[in-house]
Write a protein that binds this DNA or RNA. Structure first.
Lengths: 155, 155
DNA sequence: CTCTGTGCAAACTGTTTGCAGAACG
DNA sequence: CGTTCTGCAAACAGTTTGCACAGAG
């Protein structure tokens, strides 16, 4: 087992623990599917759509239905283990949330590419808002859209 | 004519000018529909979905098809006159962009209500990102999701 | 006159739902 | 054992597309 695989396993152990606690607290069942799906998600290093996850799992001969994926994404999001994004496209994009680089997104209106960036000041805004409005904030989602410099002459 | 109506007309004159410039620059045509739709949008003081806009216009006996609405929303967004949001729901939400209060959104995971807040620091983050990544940023979208204090005991 | 924009309806695509059987507690 | 979770397929909802005609340039 190489170092990378070991790290994945370590993270997954922690993530599994969080899921267990969450399921217990909510009175939900520990099903094999939930763990299998979560493990698969934590092996993906990027944003993904439900259909990509479905194909990935189908290729590995896991028998999971789309409905189950949709169901459980909701569970994972609520447990704080997965972040759900709605970029410009029609399908939702997900990414793992635990022990993952904090970052936000920058989408090019011309080429639709998604870039990532990180600015710690967003956390300060979050804290201020929490206090100001008496909200318990679980997640933030910041997107900038614009044009990367390649096609600039058009505009 | 009251003061409120006068203000709507004033704003619309400016907005119309921006659209005209944009259409000219892009070689698009000035159609009656584009102006009618834009005027209707600028009479709405809130977020709205395509279908709401469609119903509003139908009630006023304007004959507009959904396809035309979808087509032109894209034009307006690109012209910077309308902002498109994708909150948790499946349908996109729009709001007018010109001469409108700068604000962002806070969505409650329990009751799905959308609150607004404003923090000027977001603009600083935007500028930094623009410089850092060499991007020409047209629009930002910041959302916090969490729980308003009512149902706090559940979690 | 040409060609973009429009209305309409059908097609498409992502997501949700209903149901019968599997399996967690 | 009772009840939740799953897989499957059908239903649904928002959006896009194809086509014939209207109308801007």
């Amino acid at each position: 087992m190489n170092a990378k695989q070991q790290n994945i396993d370590e993270v997954f152990t922690q993530v599994k623990q969080i899921l267990d606690d969450y399921l217990k607290k909510k009175g939900l069942r520990k099903t094999l599917e939930r763990y299998t799906i979560l493990r698969e998600i934590y092996a993906i290093n990027d944003h993904f759509e439900i259909d990509e996850l479905y194909e990935r799992m189908k290729n590995k001969k896991y028998r999971v239905s789309r409905a189950t994926l949709y169901n459980n994404m909701e569970v994972f999001v609520d447990a704080g283990l997965v972040i759900k994004h709605q970029f410009g496209t029609n399908s939702a994009q997900y990414e793992r949330a635990y022990n993952y680089r904090q970052h936000d997104h920058l989408i090019c209106l011309d080429c639709n590419k998604v870039f990532e960036f990180c600015d710690p000041r967003i956390i300060q805004i979050q804290k201020t808002t929490e206090n100001l409005l008496g909200f318990n904030i679980v997640q933030h989602s910041l997107q900038f859209s614009g044009r990367c410099r390649t096609l600039e002459t058009n505009w």
